[in-house]
Computed example of a mutant assay.
Amino acid sequence: MSSVCGIYKRFEAHLLMIIAQFGYTFLYFITEASFNHGMNVQVYVTYRHFVGGLVMWPLAYFLERKSRPKLTFALFFEIFVLSLLGVSLTLNMYFASLRYTSPTFLASMVNTIASMTFIIAVVIRIEKLDVKSLHGIAKMVGTLVSLAGVTVMTSYKGPRVRNLWNALIHIQGNTIHEDWVKGSLLTVASCITWSIWYIMQASTLKRYPAQLSLTTWMSLLGGLQSAVFAAIVERDPKAWTVGFNIDMWSIIYAGVVCSGVIIFIQLWCTKEKGPVFVTMFNPLSTVFVAILAYSVFGEKLYVGSVLGGVMVIIGLYLVLWGKEADQTTSDMPSQECQERKEDNLKEVLQV
Rank of each mutant, 00 (worst) to 15 (best):
D343K: 13
Q338Y: 09
G322E: 03
V348G: 00
L345G: 01
E347Q: 10
D326K: 14
Q350C: 06
T329S: 10
K341V: 02
M332W: 07
Q350G: 06
L349G: 01
E336L: 13
L345I: 07
E336K: 14
T329H: 04
Q327E: 10
C337D: 06
K346C: 06
K341G: 02
E339R: 13
E342A: 11
Q327D: 09
Q327I: 01
W321H: 00
P333W: 15
R340T: 03
G322L: 07
R340P: 00
A325L: 00
Q350H: 13
E339V: 08
K323H: 03
V348P: 00
T328H: 10
K346R: 14
T328Q: 07
D326R: 13
R340M: 04
E342M: 08
D326G: 03
E336Y: 10
R340D: 07
D331E: 13
Q327S: 10
Q350I: 04
S334G: 06
E336F: 08
G322R: 05
D331H: 15
L349D: 02
L345V: 02
Q327Y: 04
W321Q: 00
S330Q: 11
M332T: 03
E336Q: 14
E336S: 13
G322W: 02
K341A: 07
E324Q: 08
Q327H: 07
R340Y: 12
K346W: 04
V351W: 08
T329D: 06
D331T: 11
D331W: 05
R340S: 05
G322Q: 04
Q335L: 14
P333G: 15
V348I: 10
K346P: 00
E336G: 06
R340L: 03
P333V: 15
V348D: 02
C337E: 12
L345P: 00
S334E: 14
T328P: 00
K323L: 05
D331Y: 06
Q327C: 03
T328Y: 06
D331L: 13
W321T: 00
T329Q: 11
S334L: 14
E347F: 05
V351T: 09
V351M: 11
